[in-house]
Design a binder for these strands. Structure first.
Length: 495
RNA sequence: GCCCCCAUCGUCUAGUGGUCUAGGACACAGCCCUUUCAAGGCUGCGACAGGGAUUCGAGUUCCCUUGGGGGCACCA
């Protein structure tokens, strides 16, 4: 294959929020296109009016942009093969369907949905594979005229061969053959005039000169039907590669089909926008997603975008379904956060803090970044480590102040001592704070843990907080003394 | 029920007949470091689904079984 002829497409249907599984498919298509210097096309398959969701399209476009998967042709960017919305291509599908009817490859079917359902039920009851019984396949001109006279709107069905076999090659799975008896006469054009996936997909892939189809494994069993269509049209079928399914972390069932609520467990994101909101970095998502079903050498796990483009090969794509590991994603996200420049991280944290309703200022966040950079796995993890910098009064349970082995009274004494020492300091920088407080602990004969622990809770309102000295320096002497005073008062009151 | 696909540690995977007493990563456990929590360092736990066949030799090839996944719409 010549590298400049590769054309791949990602063709989602706007029926809901954009899912990570779809993102992985889009990513592989994008990587494949970039690797071969080809084109990545985005096509919107909006042919189902009943499932259409208006928020799905903006969600999809935003998610793809967030992940950095820019498309060369498609919505908002145009291209020479448009339109890229199938709803704008209706006449095209109707023409092609009519062509097939004319040539005897397809026929109108007037069966009602009720009849079809009934047929299926009977088949199921009888233990035979469900499928259309080809009731309308050999209608006479007269019968057709009668149906039309009744005002019935037909669907157009493909006249699939009754015998023989159909086979094709999948780049990942090799040669696949099915018995034509398994194929039924699929609907190409619905009675509302819209095409089904099968027709629209085949027509568009041909017209858009798609060279490689990389899509989810769930499509594998409909490829034989597509082969029939390509044959009927006399077109060459693009190269096929069916990507393994992404499974729920339990390994049971597709991630996209998982029940959102697992009792007793926290709800994990599955939509791309949810990952963004949860504080995952797009570069980490891309790196991680690339590795769900693909490996380079089994050793390297961190790749820049350019490295992914350079190394990505279909040959490295796994055939078996893979579970989606949130643990590994978090690990990778944390690693990416650690690699971020301080200004960069601070900027990203600002957005998260503001979304949380905190009145954060960039300077303070930037100062705090070195304290928390190794402590957060997602951007959202920063909230409990930073929120107390940006509120007037912190609110917490006074019980938290009490340190192990010190009791309430001992803690009050330690806090009072710390308050006096801190209030008396002339310079409040990190080094000075560390030197002073360490000396104080020694002088007071107090353990570092309990002594520092009380001050930490008094100033942060939490037992887990950023490293003490840096935190105090950022808070500033006035605030620190105020908070210590309050802590002493609270503890005295509750005792 | 029928059809298709798949099968290495709990998970993601490396492995394309001999270098495999099977490598890496996540998770988990222990130790070190340590003011909390992390990060970091070291160590440990842990897999070729089962059975046949081919071969001097099989994780690697073939068959069967089992298991898992997907599909069987006027949805994509």
């Amino acid at each position: 294959m010549t590298s400049d002829t590769v054309r791949v497409r990602f063709a989602p249907s706007p029926t809901g929020y954009f899912h990570v599984g779809g993102a992985r498919t889009a990513l592989y298509n994008w990587l494949f296109a970039r690797h071969h210097g080809g084109k990545f096309i985005l096509r919107i398959e909006d042919t189902d009016r009943t499932r259409y969701q208006p928020q799905a399209l903006p969600d999809l476009l935003e998610a793809l942009r967030w992940l950095g998967l820019c498309w060369d042709e498609g919505p908002q960017v145009g291209g020479g093969y448009g339109p890229y919305y199938q709803s704008d291509r209706q006449e095209l599908y109707q023409e092609y369907a009519q062509q097939l009817v004319k040539e005897g490859h397809a026929y109108p079917c007037y069966c009602s949905p009720e009849r079809l359902r009934q047929v299926r039920e009977e088949q199921r009851a009888a233990g035979i594979p469900p499928g259309y019984d080809r009731h309308c396949r050999d209608l006479t001109e007269k019968e057709i005229a009668e149906y039309e006279a009744q005002g019935l709107k037909p669907v157009i069905r493909l006249a699939a061969p009754l015998e023989g076999t159909t086979s094709f090659d999948d780049l990942l799975r090799g040669h696949i053959t099915v018995n034509n008896r398994q194929l039924d006469d699929m609907v190409l054009l619905k009675s509302d005039g819209f095409p089904t996936y099968h027709l629209a997909n085949v027509v568009d892939d041909h017209l858009m000169e798609i060279t490689h189809i990389l899509r989810g494994e769930e499509w594998l069993s409909s490829v034989p039907k597509h082969v029939l269509l390509y044959d009927a049209f006399g077109w060459e079928m693009p190269v096929q590669a069916h990507l393994p399914t992404i499974l729920d972390p339990s390994g049971e069932g597709k991630l996209s089909k998982r029940k959102k609520q697992t009792p007793g467990k926290k709800e994990m994101p599955t939509f791309v926008h949810e990952f963004r909101e949860a504080g995952y970095l797009p570069e980490a998502m891309v790196n991680f997603l690339a590795l769900v079903g693909w490996a380079y050498d089994g050793q390297t796990e961190f790749f820049t975008r350019d490295e992914l483009i350079r190394y990505f090969e279909l040959e490295g794509v796994s055939k078996s379904p893979s579970a989606f590991s949130y643990d590994k994603l978090e690990h990778m996200n944390a690693a990416y956060i650690r690699e971020l420049g301080q200004n960069d991280l601070a900027g990203r944290l600002m957005r998260v803090l503001q979304e949380e309703g905190l009145d954060a200022d960039f300077e303070t966040v930037l100062q705090a970044v070195p304290l928390i950079q190794t402590r957060i796995r997602t951007l959202k993890d920063a909230i409990p480590l930073l929120d107390f910098f940006f509120v007037e009064e912190i609110d917490y349970d006074p019980e938290l102040l009490i340190q192990k082995g010190m009791g309430a009274e001992g803690t009050v004494e330690a806090l009072k001592a710390a308050r006096e020492i801190l209030a008396a300091m002339e310079s409040f920088d990190r080094e000075m704070l560390e030197a002073t407080l360490r000396q104080a602990a020694k002088d007071l004969d107090l353990g570092l843990g309990p002594f520092f622990g009380g001050v930490r809770v008094a100033c942060a309102g939490r037992r887990v907080a950023p490293p003490l000295f840096g935190m105090l320096a950022i808070l500033g002497q006035v605030t620190v003394v105020e908070r210590l005073d309050k802590a002493i008062r609270l503890l005295a009151e509750s005792a």
